[in-house]
Each structure stands twice: as structure tokens, then as C-alpha cells.
Design a protein around this nucleic acid. Structure first.
Lengths: 213, 213
DNA sequence: CGAGGTTTTGACCCCCTTCAACTTACGTGG
DNA sequence: CCACGTAAGTTGAAGGGGGTCAAAACCTCG
């Protein structure tokens, strides 16, 4: 219901005026869980993972984020996740206080954030559906299928998917052990649903994977 | 950052003007997955579950909702979950089109929805953390602890929790089998963390459960 | 009292975790 | 260019936690 919202030129310019462009190489922290902060971020290009680690040592990845996604929600002035780049990434950094002021002038900008929040919620639901599949092979198959949505990392001509994340990231996202990632990829390959070209490059039979999930 | 937002009297009245009050007994549908619709809902009193069922027969509960929570997000004009009351429930029903018009006049009302969306996203994250615990006993313990947040269903004096949902609901929320719900409740009782007074009423040792999770 | 649904308990089996070893990929320095 | 070291990925074996199937106990309502 709040979808397909577009900013006017004036609104977009005002937003750009309070944004600074920053850059992070692959595998660098944007911020760390528990750290105080007052910036939110928008991905210009690249990819980021949001992870939450708990006292028992478990490390749950909440989401992989891609171009145009926003992140940096604060809880009591502190980040409740860590944000870490997967690949070379360019970001917009926006000060919360400046943003608050801007929203007073251009209240319609809120719709942009509402849209982002709803998108994030929907993504979280899809994530839950994946992570609670009783069989890990279905989790992984569904995950690979989701990855093919990212145009920057999936070539529709050759059906080759480039994984921006490593085996541990996949395991932490889907809630299983790192060894299971390897084993299950092999299983998918044995079933002829995928073909491992290298550890990060995978050729995907989207139709058969789609039918399998 | 967008928390603690309050509507003005005028805004609240305008919102009430387009809301109709409706009532559902326990275990009745508010709407069904796949059904077209153009209403969103806010719980005045009672409780609702949002569930998503898939072709493989699995039934995943996305959330239990309580007083003041909103629900009814549409995807392409259709509900992508079913909403079903757990107990006798009173609701506000708001027409999307009327709401769209209202937002034009009172853009600040969007903040209310933004806040709800962020709350929902945060709840979804906590849900994921629960549902991916490697041991089901930690999932269930954490779930019971979450339930004690709802003042309407937990009495702080006696430490008695009234479960609004049945065993299958809990299983579908946490991603395990219905039998596991029973077995694990028994295990928690054997450990002295809870005491089953009846199938729906449980006395909880919040401190020990909190330490256990 | 009997019927139907919900909850509980038991027995068996399999999927996934854990622990360990091995292989591969990659970058640095000789 | 090769040798080496470290990190990432893969493979194997063993053990256990939770699923499934089946049946019993319990509760509610006609």
C-alpha cells in the first residue's frame, strides 16, 4: 500500500545535501554492535551483512543488503547489530539529527523510510521461512535462488551466480554449521541443480531449483 | 530514531473518523492468505496470529500480535498471510484508500506507520533469534520469556502466564513439531524453571529462565 | 456417557552437529 | 618462480537431538 513512492527533485537534493559519500573495502566494519552512533546508511554499490552476535558465541546474520538498501537502525542510541561489507562498497552516510530536521521541512521523505522498513520486514519474513525449513538442502536451495535476484551478482545469460559471502556467512544466515554448507552444496551438485565453478562462482539451474524448493 | 512519536488530537480524531470497530471471537479469521483486500487493522484488545502456509504443508507463524499492534500489509492487493484471532478480540478496521487520502492532509500520520513497521521488523529479528536456536529447549524458554512481556497475559504478582495460543501455534512459531512442544515443556518443568498448572496456565521462574537463555 | 479434539508419552530412526584431518587457494618473502 | 604459512573450503566418522508414527491420557461439549 505504501509502495512505489518517488521523491521529488527538491526532496532528493535536500537529502543529498546532508549525505556524505564514504567508501569501505571488502570485509570492513561500517559499525559494531553495541557502539553508540547517530548515522544511517544507504548502499550506493556493493554489499553489506548485518550480524548479531550473542553471549553464547552464536553469530546470527539478519540480512544481506545490496544497492539502494538502507541500514543503521538505532536502539537507545546504540547499534544493535554489526554492519560489515562483503565486497568493495560505496555508501551514503546520513546524520540522524540532520535527517530529523529535514523531515520537519519535507514530511513526505518519511515515506521513503516507511517503504524501506516494510521492505526490510518482508525480507525478514522470507529469511525466516528459509531458516526454518526442516531440511538444510531446501534452505540452501532457497537461499541460492534468492541470491539470483541481485542483478549485480547473477548473470542471466550464463546463469552464473557470484557469491559475495563466504561459507560461514551462509551458515550464519541459514542457521547451520559451516561444514553443512559445503556438504549440502556438494549434494545439490550431485543432484545436478548447481555446478561449482569455483568456491565463489556457481552455475545455477534456476528452473529445477525453483521446482525443488 | 523514529520512536516515541505521538499524534496530535486532530490527527487522532481524523484517524478515528475513518476507522470502524469490529469484533471477532476466539479462533476466527480476520482475513485469509491470498485473499484480495484493502483494509488494515489495529488491535484494540485481544490477540492475533499471522501465519503463512506453503504448498509443502508447513505452516509458519510470523508473529503473535497484541493490543495496539497493527497488521494487514498487502502485496499486490492481496494479503500474504492469514490473520486469526487467538482469543476474543476487538479491532479497528481502516480502509487503505481512506488512509491514503488522510496521509495527504496529515503527512505526520505516516510516522505512526513507520514506527509500527520498525517495531514489526525488530520483533521479526527477535523471532529469528529464537527460531534458530540450535536447542529447542532454549527456543521455548526464550519464547515463554517473551510472552511474559504481555501484561494482559502475565500476572507479575503470581508469576502466572496464560498462554493465548495452543501447542501447535507454539510449534509453528518456533519451527518444531507439536510433540516437541509438550516434551520440552515437561523438560523445563523437570528442571524447575516452570510449573504447568493447566495446559494454558504456567507458573514461571523468570529469573532462572532469564539466566538459562 | 460417548465423541472428537487437544495434549502427553513412548519407541525408533535419520539428519545434522561436532571433532578431526585433509585439500585448496592465496599472499609473502626468499 | 618456488617455498612456505595461513586462511578458507572440503571430506570423513561418530554421536545425539528432534522428527515421525503410534497410542494413551485428558478435556470439552453435546
Amino acid at each position: 500500500m505504501f509502495s512505489s513512492f518517488k521523491l521529488t527533485d527538491a526532496e532528493r537534493e535536500a537529502l543529498n545535501a546532508i549525505s556524505t559519500r564514504i567508501h569501505r573495502p571488502a570485509k570492513r566494519r561500517v559499525y559494531t554492535q553495541g557502539e553508540p552512533g547517530n548515522h544511517i546508511y544507504r548502499i550506493r554499490s556493493g554489499a553489506v551483512r548485518l550480524e548479531h552476535h550473542m553471549k553464547d558465541g552464536r553469530n546470527q546474520i539478519f540480512a544481506f543488503l545490496w544497492a539502494d538498501d538502507m541500514f543503521g537502525t538505532l536502539e537507545g542510541g546504540m547499534y544493535h547489530t554489526s554492519a560489515i561489507t562483503l565486497v568493495d562498497t560505496y555508501l551514503f552516510q546520513i546524520s540522524c539529527s540532520a535527517l530529523k530536521g529535514l523531515v520537519e521541512v519535507y514530511p513526505r521523505i518519511q515515506a521513503l523510510f516507511l517503504q524501506q522498513a516494510l521492505d526490510y520486514a518482508k525480507t525478514a519474513e522470507r529469511h525466516l521461512l528459509l531458516a526454518t525449513c526442516p531440511l538444510v538442502i531446501k534452505r540452501l536451495a532457497g537461499f541460492l535462488l534468492e541470491c539470483t535476484r541481485q542483478k549485480d551478482f547473477f548473470d542471466r545469460q550464463s546463469n552464473i551466480l557470484t557469491l559475495a559471502m563466504d561459507r560461514k556467512d551462509i551458515a550464519d544466515y541459514l542457521g547451520f554449521a559451516i561444514e553443512t554448507t559445503s556438504r549440502t552444496l556438494k549434494e545439490l551438485e550431485d543432484m545436478g541443480l548447481i555446478q561449482r565453478l569455483s568456491s565463489q562462482r556457481i552455475k545455477i539451474d534456476r528452473d529445477r531449483i525453483g521446482a525443488f524448493v
